[in-house]
Design a protein around this nucleic acid. Structure first.
Length: 575
DNA sequence: GCCGTTTTCGGCCCGACTGTTTTCAGTCG
């Protein structure tokens, strides 16, 4: 059984939690958490690195000791140290930490003084009024515990929202806050600004002189269900949707420092501050300070300048090499929405789309594109009225006619052809030969063993008509895991054959992920960004795909459809 | 447990809010 990066990260996180409750040295605990993060965000497989004899201590945050532990996990599937810890302690206490404001110290207290191990026992004790008797706990804490235990039972676990879902909450709230006269700037920071594909909560930054009216307006917003905290510079609320929103108010002269601080990521901030520290600078949300003297703070550019770095785009701030790249002047100039010149995947009424070819073409023209590819499903996808060779032939003829009447944009004849279980394509070569390009995807037999799935896809790429693999991993954010296959091998195969893997800009897919984009880039594989629109409105999702590409370090050069159709055609041509 | 342009020891990012206390620990971001 292969050990995945996630398994290793989970073991380290569990060790960290147990040590935390045990009251171990907090820096040692941090080391385990850092290592968990490093491993889980790595694009390649740690197991394969171990098998390939690579030196794991080269990885950031992983030294000789943890490298040895990773090797043990890969080779045996478990870690002696964790098994021992589980025996010596009460590992179920971990669950208690998932209750809001209960951290390791309080969990330990509850365990030692009341013998509490589970949320159920905690509820009992709180109901009987035993919790308030512990030193440091009180009536309010006891009530909060009862409320939170209830929430856990309701299954109302904190969830992450799609970026596009979050936008629907963020924009109206920002507009609402901006109605206050004295407000100078209002910006959503946090992972929303970094354009992470899913966002856990909203961090809003406001600059103004007097914070009181802002806090008042914020905490009385009509979607607020609960005010978690309310202070002079910071307040937190929970909306009815379950989203937590944190609002920070600072003076305008601190805007840049505060933006930097609240945009994160945490790991990026820590790294930047560490550089500051070495240069005798203190960096906080109010500015950059040398002793007591503020030397920067109004803009983010200033903050970076003080630590000797150029401005780093929010999408890159994950401490995944951007600081080193910045230091060496090797930051990529990220692709922008304006660079996109065409859309290479969409559906029409011929299969499961809502609009005609003409309507899609006119909408694409409105967006300023030079071309669009019509990629209805092939016949295997019966549910979506997939096209057979005859109907596709008719569509090709229709497109030819439309191209004569609609000026200023070129409609490309294409198809989203299913990759069948044996790796053959769902349509015959004769008809594929008539298309401008061919998109291929897996919709069925998604649970083949990893090796078979990988070979199936690569076999499909052996067909010289295969140009682009659509939604390559098949994942749906929050609801479906990627199917099991070796993406790295598929990428290598694509590069060898002149095929490509797309970023699907559908809000639920965003497939490839940021990490996979970077992996492709490092392999020298260019990537198209397509919307997979099923309506004219769906074409607007392009910005989501571009954001994903930016998070994956892609430049306009790295993205296929930043080119004219003439140039693109040459790149698609397989020898 | 990691790490090094103060390099093999002695550090490890920084501040706000809450609840319970009476000066601060715990937790969070």
């Amino acid at each position: 059984m292969a050990v995945h990066n996630r398994d290793i990260a989970e073991i380290f996180n569990e060790i960290a939690d147990i040590l935390d409750i045990e009251g171990e040295n907090r820096f040692r605990i941090r080391s385990y958490r850092n290592a968990a993060r490093t491993v889980s965000e790595l694009s390649g497989s740690v197991s394969e690195m171990v098998e390939g004899g690579e030196d794991l201590s080269e990885l950031p945050g992983i030294g000789k000791d943890l490298a040895g532990k990773i090797r043990e996990i890969v080779e045996t599937g478990s870690l002696q140290q964790l098994e021992k810890l589980r025996k010596e302690t009460s590992p179920e206490l971990r669950d208690l930490m998932s209750i809001g404001f209960l951290g390791p110290k309080r969990v330990k207290q509850l365990h030692e003084e009341l013998g509490i191990n589970t949320p159920k026992e905690l509820e009992e004790a709180a109901r009987q009024g035993k919790v308030r008797e512990i030193k440091g706990f009180g009536k309010k804490t006891e009530q909060k515990i009862l409320r939170d235990v209830e929430k856990i039972k309701d299954g109302a676990r904190e969830r992450r929202f799609l970026w596009s879902e979050m936008e629907e909450y963020a924009e109206p709230l920002v507009a609402y806050l901006k109605e206050i006269e004295d407000i100078e700037k209002t910006t959503v920071a946090g992972s929303y600004r970094r354009r992470k594909e899913t966002v856990g909560d909203l961090d809003i930054l406001v600059t103004c002189e007097d914070s009181a009216p802002v806090m008042e307006r914020f905490t009385t917003y009509d979607e607020v269900q609960e005010v978690i905290s309310k202070g002079a510079t910071r307040s937190s609320v929970r909306l009815r949707s379950g989203i937590q929103v944190d609002l920070r108010v600072v003076a305008d002269q601190s805007y840049g420092a505060a933006m930097h601080y609240f945009t994160g990521s945490k790991a990026h901030n820590v790294a930047v501050r560490r550089i500051g520290q070495k240069n005798k600078l203190k960096i906080n949300e109010y500015g950059v300070f040398r002793g007591k003297k503020r030397v920067a703070g109004a803009t983010e550019e200033e903050v970076y300048e003080q630590v000797g770095l150029p401005y780093i785009e929010p999408e890159l701030r994950e401490n995944r090499g951007e600081i080193e790249a910045a230091r060496e002047g090797k930051l990529p100039e990220l692709v922008r929405l304006e660079d996109i010149r065409g859309d290479l995947q969409m559906h029409t009424t011929a299969s499961d789309g809502k609009f005609s070819i003409r309507e899609m073409a006119e909408a694409a023209k409105e967006l300023g594109y030079g071309y669009l590819a019509i990629t209805d499903h092939s016949k295997r996808v019966t549910m979506a009225k997939g096209l057979d060779a005859k109907r596709l032939g008719e569509q090709i003829r229709e497109i030819e006619k439309l191209n004569e009447t609609i000026k200023g944009i070129r409609i490309l004849a294409s198809c989203e052809v299913d990759i069948l279980a044996d790796g053959s394509l769902d349509l015959e070569d004769e008809i594929l030969d008539e298309l401008d390009l061919v998109i291929c995807s897996v919709h069925y037999n998604t649970n083949l063993p990893e090796k078979k799935q990988t070979e199936r896809i690569i076999r499909a790429m052996d067909n010289p008509h295969f140009n682009i693999m659509a939604h390559p991993t098949g994942r749906l954010l929050g609801s479906r895991e990627p199917y099991a296959f070796d993406l790295e091998r598929v990428m290598k195969a694509a590069r060898e054959r002149g095929c490509f893997l797309e970023i699907n800009a559908d809000p639920e897919r965003l497939d490839l992920s940021d990490v996979h984009c970077k992996m492709a880039k490092e392999m020298g594989l260019k990537i198209p960004i397509s919307t997979d629109a099923h309506s004219t409105g769906g074409l607007d999702h392009m910005h989501l795909g571009v954001a994903q590409a930016r998070r994956g370090w892609l430049t306009a050069e790295d993205v296929l459809n930043t080119r004219s159709w003439g140039e693109l055609k040459k790149l698609l041509k397989r020898s």
